[in-house]
Design a protein around this nucleic acid. Structure first.
Lengths: 206, 206, 206, 206
DNA sequence: CATGAATGAGTTTTCATTCAT
DNA sequence: TATGAATGAAAACTCATTCAT
């Protein structure tokens, strides 16, 4: 009823949207995309069920947006590693470490990406698929120099990138029910990241 | 009460069961555990809907059984690698390669394990969780010697194993919608496996 | 496999039939006609599921038979009361007491009749309905003299009979979940029966 | 969050609920609780199938509510009888007559109570059981004085009450398929009630 | 005749989405 | 714009009944 200025309204609306996305990431990551009902999300966000659909076209596009947010966040942390001048292995180790730490702190994000990947395959999942592809591309570009210098086919760098990403996401996805990963000390996680990097960096014809 | 041909009957029944499991693995792996309706499975297996429920307590225990079959199959291929006398790195590379090739040939298996992992977390999923744990244990035991010799904490070997498994499953899970992995030449896949192994084998305090 | 003489076979078959009916009365009375599955009955009777259908046309006709058995049993106990020379009230009291005692000892019978009454209304329930009608008729005939001498319309005696029956069945049907009736001392039950009889016997224009 | 017309909405909703309950009583009473599908009820109420489940937790709790309504209605008619100053027998006759007339006019109510009694026994049926118990208690309290003055054990008055209730419900339950009771003239029904009352009131050690 | 494997019609319940207020 | 009541498609699961052995 409050007749605020349009600015305030828009601000409120943006905040609601953010709250929905936050609640969604938390709940969908924890309980699963399918198991998590829209109503749970709106309840957690403190708004009516209908509001959800004024902000998003549907559950699927909500997930797509969530995936976008997660990968944007991740990309923001990964990119600096690529900018710092360093040798191929170090850069790779950095990318690996960033990924591992990112998902250790955000197991819901790992869960969301994993489950969203199913949607990416079906129809209507182009958005998610493209977003995933973009992230693979980003990582691939960072690995390209190293790959080139090691005789790894240039057109296959994306496989290298995929492996790195899959490893870090999968580690926490499979780790969660087994109660592994969550409490792995950061130091060990880094060693793991470096080891992985060293291995991938050393991928070469023998 | 003695049957005329109890064998024939039992044999037929066993065959039906096998057909259901095969169809289930194929369909659930391709279209997703949730998306795949029981009726689709029975139709694919050429039996009536009700038959499914005379063989399995429900969809969930069906998945649990499927997970068991997949991991049994995988374990059967992995174990020999551990028996052959070889240095830590070679053994690790072998385990990695076996996993990668296994899931490259069976992307539905990768998909099934990935999605089943969600069930493993919820209630009623103890069976699946235990089966997953057992496989991690198996791989962990094969990695133990290498880990020990490299100063990796013995009680953390399961994390090493988890990473190896997560990598190979995740690679094909995330690869599928991105159309990556499926056509990766076996040679490259082996290099990838070896690289990974070399990295993990070289995990060390620096 | 045993090639017994036809007599023995027939005897065995009759025994199986009896066992099925006994198990059916017990289980259906306790857990409800609908809730009680055919397989439970056959399991309790120690035979295969298919055997049930070689003895009865289906679940419904099985119930009909059960109703028949119960009412035959009841009628056998009621009839003597009508034969003994006695005044209207005493006879009525006797009939009431027999009914009450019968169902106190056989709450499953009360349950069965109550639920079967639903079937009696639907199509295919003519058998049950006719059997119920016959019992009402039997009791009505025993009440007729009393009614006549009291100015109760002769064509309405069946209502008197119905009330007596409904009371005794209903008492234990409703009593069971409320834990009433089962432990009511026989003496009190008799007083109740007599009271009821005296009341009904005294039905008169005032 | 404040609605424009929360009243109108709430009113509409309440009306829908009422329509569902009415349709439910009618249909379940006529065709049976189990035989009556939820969809029939919603169709009769002119709403969508899903609406049913926004109003009631499930079929069982719907029945529980229906039982509550019926017994509330009945109690409302019975209570005045207890308040009017009158001797034990007259009061008893009144209670009996009210019950009989109530169920004569509402055979579906008799049917519903009868069938609901099965649910009262199973788990999840505590609500129904408690409601039934309460009604027995109500009637028992009205019979207590009469019982006391007649030497009927005070702790057994509930059995007296149960008998009265069982009689009136059972009369119409069993009467329906036999086409008895529905057309019994009110005068006769009253005589029956009085007779019953006189009988029960006269229950005494002889 | 006895058996139990197979069957599929039938029912409850869930939940994303729509839309009147 | 926000809301929550209404919706109905969809899916798991049950169980009486059939029938090959």
């Amino acid at each position: 009823m409050a007749e605020d200025r349009p600015d305030k309204r828009r601000q409120r609306r943006a905040q609601t949207r953010r709250r929905l996305l936050e609640a969604g990431l938390e709940l969908m990551g924890r309980r699963g995309i399918v198991a998590c009902k829209v109503e749970e999300i709106t309840r957690a966000a403190g708004v009516g069920k209908g509001t959800f659909f004024t902000h998003f076209a549907g559950k699927e596009s909500f997930v797509a947006e969530l995936v976008g947010l997660v990968l944007d966040d991740l990309a923001r942390r990964v990119r600096p590693v690529g900018l710092a001048p360093s040798d191929a292995e170090a850069r790779l180790a950095g990318v690996g470490a960033v990924h591992l730490r990112f998902f250790q702190l955000r197991p819901q994000a790992a869960a969301l990406l994993t489950e969203a990947c199913r949607l990416a395959g079906g129809e209507g999942g182009e958005g998610i698929r493209r977003r995933l592809e973009r992230h693979v591309e980003l990582v691939a570009e960072m690995l390209a120099p190293a790959a080139a210098s090691l005789g790894w086919p240039a057109e296959r760098v994306r496989e290298l990138a995929l492996m790195l990403i899959a490893t870090s996401v999968g580690f926490f996805w499979f780790g969660t029910p087994l109660e592994l990963g969550r409490d792995t000390p950061a130091a060990l996680l880094d060693r793991l990241g470096r080891a992985l990097a060293r291995g991938l960096a050393g991928v070469r014809r023998e």
